[in-house]
């Protein structure tokens, strides 16, 4: 009798212990699920602009990359500010918005260091951030020019071919889609897409109701940008 009770008690303890171990293991597995995978860090900035716009864009882009490109991408975006401790952990930075951008003085220096140390920034004008972006990026790199990339630049051909340069996704001011770059020691560190609105193109189909070919063009161009940044 007594023996039975002891055996039962032991079984219960064993089950609890097993459960605990499994729980810890699963939690740990979730924590390390991002380990070794590519992620896009969306930049949170001050100034009033909507850094959070096009919420479905980056997850869709990451999914597209995972399915079509030789990159193991984590399906969710990371959100990061320049002053965050782990800011330098993300090699690929994305920023967009419709409004004002303002970097603090320390943020200017930190962002500069980030980009000069190997980071990459894709700035995508969602329509309205052009003026403030140009102003702020000039503070980050006062001695470097934003120069328009020609159609034969590798960023337009590295995985998918875009012989005519940036695809025009959405209409802003009736201007041509342009891709501008800032180079540092020969390396493209900032890519600014203007009058193009790739972010809109990456959104869920029902958001803007664009033709599928337009969406695909945007996703493919997004893939090109990411691959280029990782490979160059």
């Amino acid at each position: 009798m007594k023996g039975n009770r002891i055996r039962q008690f032991s079984r219960v303890c064993f089950a609890l212990a097993l459960f605990l171990v499994l729980y810890i293991a699963i939690s740990y597995a979730q924590d390390i699920s991002t380990y070794g995978k590519f992620t896009i860090a969306r930049l949170i900035y001050d100034g009033g602009g909507d850094w959070y716009s096009d919420p479905s864009s980056l997850p869709n882009l990451l999914k597209f990359i995972k399915e079509n490109a030789p990159i193991d991408a984590y399906p969710e975006e990371i959100r990061v500010s320049i002053m965050d401790n782990d800011f330098f952990s993300y090699p690929y930075l994305y920023m967009t918005g419709h409004g004002n951008i303002k970097f603090g003085d320390e943020e200017v220096l930190r962002l500069r260091r980030y980009l000069q140390s190997g980071g990459f920034l894709h700035a995508d004008d969602n329509y309205g951030m052009d003026k403030s972006f140009r102003r702020e990026i000039k503070r980050v790199f006062p001695n470097n020019e934003l120069i328009e990339l020609p159609f034969n630049h590798p960023i337009f051909h590295i995985f998918y071919d875009f012989p005519k340069g940036l695809p025009k996704i959405h209409e802003h001011d009736g201007k041509l889609a342009q891709g501008f770059g800032i180079f540092y020691k020969g390396r493209l560190i900032v890519f600014y897409t203007y009058e193009c609105d790739l972010g809109d193109g990456w959104e869920d189909p029902k958001v803007h109701g664009d033709p599928e070919e337009i969406r695909q063009a945007a996703l493919k161009m997004g893939t090109n940008i990411i691959l280029y940044s990782l490979m160059k």
Binding site: I147, E148, L149, P150, F151, N152, H153, K164, G165, P167, K168, I169, H170, E171, L176, A177, Q178, C196, D197, D200, H208, D210, P211, I214
Partner: peptide
């Protein structure tokens, strides 16, 4: 949003 129209144009000059 309005879907953009691709306008054919020449490439900007070389870097």
């Amino acid at each position: 949003s309005k879907t953009g129209e691709d306008i054919v144009r020449t490439s900007p000059g070389e870097l």
